[in-house]
Simulated assay, not measured.
Amino acid sequence: MPKAVRFHKLGGPEVLQIEDVAARHPEMGEVAIDVAAVGLNRAESMYYRGNYSQKPEFPSGLGYEVVGTVTAVGEGVDASLIGKRIGTIPIFSMNRYPVLSEKAVVPAEAVAEFPPSLSSIEGASVWMQYPTAYGALVEFAKVGPGDMVLLTAATSSVGLAAIQIVKAQGAISIATTRTSAKKQVLLDLGADHVIANQEEDLPARVHEITGGKLARVAFDAIGGSYIDTLAQAVAPEGTIYLYGLLSEEANSYPVSAFFKCISLTGYMMHQMNRPERFDRMKRYVYERLANGSFKPRVDRTFPFEQVADAYRYLESNQQVGKVVIAI
C-alpha cells in the first residue's frame, strides 16, 4: 500500500502522520500519478490548522502541487497522457484529491506539462506560484510597460513568480520583505526595488521610488491592518489584489483606500478555472519556462519522512522560494 500524509485533528505540523492508504483507481475524468515531488504551500498549513476556506474531513490528507508520472487514466481521458511527466494545478479540493502521497489521483483538467529542462523538484515549484501571480497581475490587472507594482511577502514562491511576471510584462516591481536581511537576494532575483517594511516607511519609500506617482497595483499576501499601509502606497483609483491572509487580524476596507477610490479585490486561483483563461495561463507560463525567462527557485528539499519538519520550516518564513518534498 502506498504511503500518504494524513491528519486526524486540527493543529500544527505535529498532527501530520505518514500512513498506509489504499491506492485509488482513476474514475471518469481522472488520472493516477506516481508522485516524485510535492511543492509545499501556505494553503496546506492553513488547512491543517483549520484556517483555510475549506475545512478538512477527518481523517484528511492534504497537498495541492505535485510532479509525477501518469500511470493510468479514467474514462473520457486521453490515454496518451500515460507515461508523461506532469504537474498539478491547484484547482481541486484537498478533501477529494489529497496529493501528498506516493501515489495520487487528480482531475485530468488539473494536470499540466512543463519543459523537460526542469527537474521534478523544480517542476513542483511551478503550477501554484506562476498561475497565482499570473491571474491577478496579467489576466485581471493587465500590468504593462511602466506600471509600478507593489509585491508583499516577496520571498515566497508566489512573490518570486510575481517578480518574474512583472518583469516579463515590462513593468517595475517594488518588492517588500520584513527586514533588510533578504533585500540583496531579492535584487539578485530580479526585483527592481526592495523595501524592508519593518525598517522603512513603506508609503514614503514608494513615493520616493515612483516620483510621487505611487503604485498602480499591489499584490498582497498579508491582509489585516497592513492593507491600510498598502493603500497609502497605492495611487488613486489603483487596485490591491489580496490573495493571501498571512495576518490573523480581521480585514476591513481602510479609510485611506476609500478617499483615494482604491479597489480592494479578493483573488483566488479558482477564478482562473474558465477554459479561455486557463488555456491562456498555461501557454503563458509554459512558454516562459521553456525560454528561460521564468526560473523557479527551490529553497530547500526535504525527504518524505520529514514532512512535519518541512512544514515547520515553511511556517518559519526563513525560505526564499519553494520548499519541496522529494518522494
Rank of each mutant, 00 (worst) to 15 (best):
A175K: 06
H193D: 02
R280A: 15
T71I: 10
S125Y: 10
Y253I: 12
T176Y: 11
S125N: 09
G224P: 03
E122L: 03
R49G: 12
E199Q: 13
A310M: 14
S252L: 04
A221D: 05
E109H: 07
R24K: 14
G266F: 14
P203V: 05
G135N: 07
E102I: 04
S156I: 03
A141V: 01
I82T: 11
G244W: 08
S157M: 08
K282P: 01
S263M: 13
H270F: 14
K322W: 04
T69V: 15
I209Y: 13
D279S: 14
G146R: 09
M272C: 08
Y226D: 11
S117P: 00
V285G: 02
G244A: 07
A231M: 09
S80R: 13
S60C: 03
I195Q: 03
R96H: 04
L150K: 09
E139L: 14
T210D: 08
E109P: 00
Y226A: 10
V106A: 08
T229Y: 06
E315K: 08
V105E: 01
F302L: 07
A168L: 07
K295H: 10
V194L: 07
G39A: 13
I18T: 03
P145D: 14
R42Q: 08
G144C: 04
G87H: 04
R216P: 00
A181W: 09
L189P: 08
A308Y: 01
V5N: 03
G223Q: 11
V106T: 01
I121H: 03
V99Y: 05
A168R: 09
P131M: 06
A181F: 13
V138Q: 09
G12N: 06
D147S: 05
I121V: 15
Y253C: 01
T132E: 08
S45A: 12
G223D: 10
D220W: 05
G144H: 10
L264E: 03
L100R: 00
V70I: 15
W127Q: 00
G123R: 03
Y130Q: 02
I33K: 02
V234F: 05
A310C: 12
L137G: 01
A221Q: 11
G266Q: 09
D34C: 00
E248Q: 13
A108F: 11
I121Q: 05
Q232L: 13
K55W: 02
G123P: 00
M269L: 15
T71K: 09
A43I: 05
S293L: 10
Y47V: 05
Y52A: 00
K183T: 11
P59F: 07
P203A: 06
S263P: 00
I89G: 01
E44W: 04
Y311I: 06
G61D: 02
G266T: 13
V35P: 03
D201G: 00
L160I: 12
N197T: 04
E14W: 10
K84V: 10
V307L: 07
S80P: 00
V5I: 14
E14Y: 08
V320I: 14
T88P: 06
A204V: 00
K213P: 02
P98V: 07
Q17T: 15
L214N: 02
G190P: 12
